[in-house]
Design a protein around this nucleic acid. Sequence first.
DNA 1: GCCTCCCATGTAATCGATTGCAGTAGAAGT
DNA 2: ACTTCTACTGCAATCGATTACATGGGAGGC
Lengths: 342, 342
Amino acid sequence: MQRVTIAQVADRAGVSTATVSRVLSGRGPVSPGVQRKVRRAAEELGYQVNSIARALRNSRTDTVGMVVPSISNPFFTSLVESVEHALGREGRELFLCDARSDPEIEARRLASLVARNVDGIIVSPSHGTLSGPAVQETADRLPLVQLDRFVGGTSTDWVGVDDIAAMRLVMDHLHEGGARSASFVGSLLTNSSTEQRHAGFQRRAEELGIGVAPEHVLLGDYSVDWGETAAARLIEAGDLPDAIVCADDLIALGVTRACRRYGIDVPSRVQVTGYDNIEFARLGEPALTTVDQPRAQIAAEAVRLLDLASRTATAERGPSAHIALAPALVVRDSTVSGGGRG
Amino acid sequence: MQRVTIAQVADRAGVSTATVSRVLSGRGPVSPGVQRKVRRAAEELGYQVNSIARALRNSRTDTVGMVVPSISNPFFTSLVESVEHALGREGRELFLCDARSDPEIEARRLASLVARNVDGIIVSPSHGTLSGPAVQETADRLPLVQLDRFVGGTSTDWVGVDDIAAMRLVMDHLHEGGARSASFVGSLLTNSSTEQRHAGFQRRAEELGIGVAPEHVLLGDYSVDWGETAAARLIEAGDLPDAIVCADDLIALGVTRACRRYGIDVPSRVQVTGYDNIEFARLGEPALTTVDQPRAQIAAEAVRLLDLASRTATAERGPSAHIALAPALVVRDSTVSGGGRG
DNA sequence: GCCTCCCATGTAATCGATTGCAGTAGAAGT
DNA sequence: ACTTCTACTGCAATCGATTACATGGGAGGC
């Protein structure tokens, strides 16, 4: 049950540990005969490198840490999948952490990742301001890229989509579908996603002359339950707007569910939009019109930035990259398309 | 940017590295004055342990590895959440790996976890037979618990629910609701979950006199798409049974979606059941009747078994534990309850 | 036949934290 | 005052892999 070490392989092959290392890592000149002997010995003993020892020596772990607000949110799990895919087959592993939308837990996770010597960190900060110190402190110690969300007061690389542009697409589409008044349902404005989306919503609504009553901006959290609650509130208040714009798909699913419960037809009575295009968005009743984020591309960029940063000393780095990719509108059945009934 | 080491702290505090280590780990007697000096020095330098070095020395990483077939399946992500929770606040971290339902990728992940010296592994094997060698080999090297699914030809601990009992609950409920014929939609019989659930289904159907035509057993994979395809096939064939029993909720969601598309009413024309009770099960139209697995308990047992195994030498261990917890039926709107219309 | 040069291999230092053993000083006992 | 603890503290080995440097031997050149 003892783990096999390089020394045992060396013994068996009748060579030194240095030679074994050279053979197994493919570095350094070793005669073919010795190579064969070493490989045989390693094979027979079932040798596997101890990557802890290797990591200590090389100060590289071939490990990337990722911290997301919640892995039960399908959007984030799909991002995780994309990142894993982007890391490729080069033997790099992903250390996944769930911050439970709590900046304190998040800070602990980040510290733990630093202690574990990950080569880089990809984080989607839970909170728009409270996540700041921990993220910045971590970024000072090793390569870090913020994904999707970002936190104020930090200067790190960031990759995500242009939320403002996305909201322009959404609002234009709703307007075309005849919406003249709208409501916004999001989480509290404590993270950049909701913040940006809300800002984009307000701006374009104004430009298009779509009315937004102050009491029609409802902020809770990213969950189906909150969407349901918020929609019920709107419906029971009696002045349902023409459209309900949601900050993510979970909320939108809750909204359409409430509408179904109250017998409010979507989209003829009220149009509803989501954001993220999670798998379940198309399964809703009706299927959700939503904003699709180019996850694969986002993930690829994030990994690229991380690699870039690893190659450069922390101190030597120039200004941080801020990459906003273009989102796409996915039109389904929860909005009025084409003719525009209104 | 250099990481602060224990030696630097020792220098600054004017003591030896041994003393610093003793202070910081709280082991060994150190005079109060020195303690204060060391703590101050560590604080000022922003010292953080290098857990790689610590792991090498202690051959413990305070890390648990977890391998699941797919993290985009909400059931597995909720299991992951439960395990993370069960690991508690003791500074233990979870190394999460997605096997993409591919035994080969799974084997690579397991090997990588072993190389990374995790203290234990929790795995839900992707394949009922092909996953065997890798799982067994890994279990020979370190503590391993199989979760939910298990693989034949291995002797490791396992925790999950009693699928046979669960299916008994499902079938009894459907029978009470008037079902006299039923269909089973699952994944290929290449993993224990489907296998067991199918077996339980067949057995109880027979006992209750519920008819199951051979062509009404449809096997594909765990996805909404497959559920939709399978249901469409049943509907178009023209002899829809009284009930469709699905091996998981994703499939069931696909089935109800197809029914909606074809104008088949659930549950009056056909009853539908899922399995797992994922969050979206209650959001379906209609909300799904399904089997709830006691995840928190499953996770807690798994962690307990792992801890137990760590305390015992691999060779010294007795027979492996096989813990089947009791599942519960969650009745919602996709089945006929109470009176039993028929 | 002798001297270079280079290829193959070994020796030992290194990464950073932990810990068994040894040594020291001060207190307590007689 | 001398012994005997004991409470601290330091030295150095250790975990396993990597690698700079040292070494040895054979090939080729003169």
